[in-house]
Design a protein around this nucleic acid. Sequence first.
RNA 1: GUCCCCAUGGUGUAGCUGGCCCAACACGCUGCCCUUUCAAGGCAGAGACCGCGGGUUCGAAUCCCGCUGGGGACGCCA
Length: 469
Amino acid sequence: MGGARTALFNWLYARRNSGTFILRIEDTDAERSSADMVAGILDGMKWLGLDWDEGPGIGGPHAPYFQSERYDRHRAAAASLVADGRAYYCYCSAERLRQERERAEARGVAWQYDRQCLNLSAARIAELEAANTPRATRFKVPPGKTAFDDVVHGRIEFDGDHIEDFVIVRSDGHPIYHLSVVVDDIDMEITHIVRGDDHISNTPKHVLLFTALGATLPVFAHVPLILGADKKRLSKRHGATSVMEYERQGYLPDALVNFLALLGWSPGDDREIMSRRELIASFALEGITGSNAVFDVAKLDWMNGQYIARMPLEQLTNAVVPLLVRDGLWPAGASVDDWLLRLIELLRPRAKRLTDFVDQARPFLVETVEYEQQAIHSHLKVPHLSEHVTAVARALRDVVPFDEPHLETAVRQTAEQRDIKAAPLIHATRVAVTGRTASPGLFEVLVLLGRERTVARLEQLAAFLATQT
RNA sequence: GUCCCCAUGGUGUAGCUGGCCCAACACGCUGCCCUUUCAAGGCAGAGACCGCGGGUUCGAAUCCCGCUGGGGACGCCA
């Protein structure tokens, strides 16, 4: 989600300023990168409607857009840095570095590379090379301060003493992320880097590289992180993490985009429900807050409900149908008819997520309903209810026309004739046709269900009640 | 431990060129209305001495310092 929000900010900024939104896949780490992961990112972006102007699938003047296909450029840049004396080879073994780090940690101190390989003699280097010792490439961090102006945080300064001589090319020849991003950003003519706050401490390294490579600095904007309800960084523990998981849970892309845009950013006024157009028109990096934001599912649900409430009925129905099909409640390929449209409209004010429709539509789409335990307890413990229900069934069999006012009159009259209140009869009828304690207005439900099913279910309940006593 | 970022009610934000703020909007929460239930909707309300402590000033949520708290980064990961 954090990544999606960051992508959204980038997209909004590019669209607002008629810029170019470039999608580059940073798959430098073979172990963590996979086709699945990439597909997940692309699917998520597409679903959210964050279209890119250059990148995977569509290409562009700065191709290729997979970082792993740009290694040669990265290595060339590293070589030039070594040639310029701005980087050097490091022959230290991973084992040695690990031990040093552990030793330092045991003392509660942070360890930085000790520059053992910075001043190796020519003879020593020749010796190591002759022995075919694996070598990594390290950037030689110059003394003094490194600073940059961040659009959301202002000026941020780091002391060179706190930046170690970081590796830019591994001993196996693979470039490290820091080198790759900077080289690619330069090559791709990136003007604005909008990314998560967690990169802020990497930025001085990047600034150093931009400078060493003779490039001008892009604009940096580090956006705050999204936290879970426990104020910890959003992760698997907090439930859904991937964008597509939210689709599965019944959220609308427009609602999620709107919600995400308001996490850490505000247009400066009180607007909350904002279309993409409005979002784009109002977006500015300056409106991004500096503090982390907690992801509040309750508010997302509310917002999704707002979008459901405002969606054109046909569009909404078309979005729900696949879910109904998935649950076997609606035949695949069947066309949307007027009856379905009316059902969706009836359920609409009660739905926060698309999946709510599935649950609520069930009684209308299955042959026989099951009575909830709670419903039996609350509404079926009425004396002589079986006979009452039978009477209702009989009354409704003859109601003409089978519409709300006539149905209501019929039920109320039945109650009157049997000298009981209407409420218990209405509740029992609800249980008969839906099996539940809660549903949309009963008479609307009956109309939608139709005479045949209504009467059948009432008789069914009467029979059920008869066996209970 | 070191470095960096942040700090307005439970949550997201507005206000932050100081006075219009004994703090606004939204979600959530509570109650009422509507009502056959559940929602939706309408109305009302509770909830923040603007993290704490010092300054500066006639006056500070708004400026400065310290503290505390939260978060992030400290990898031949990205």
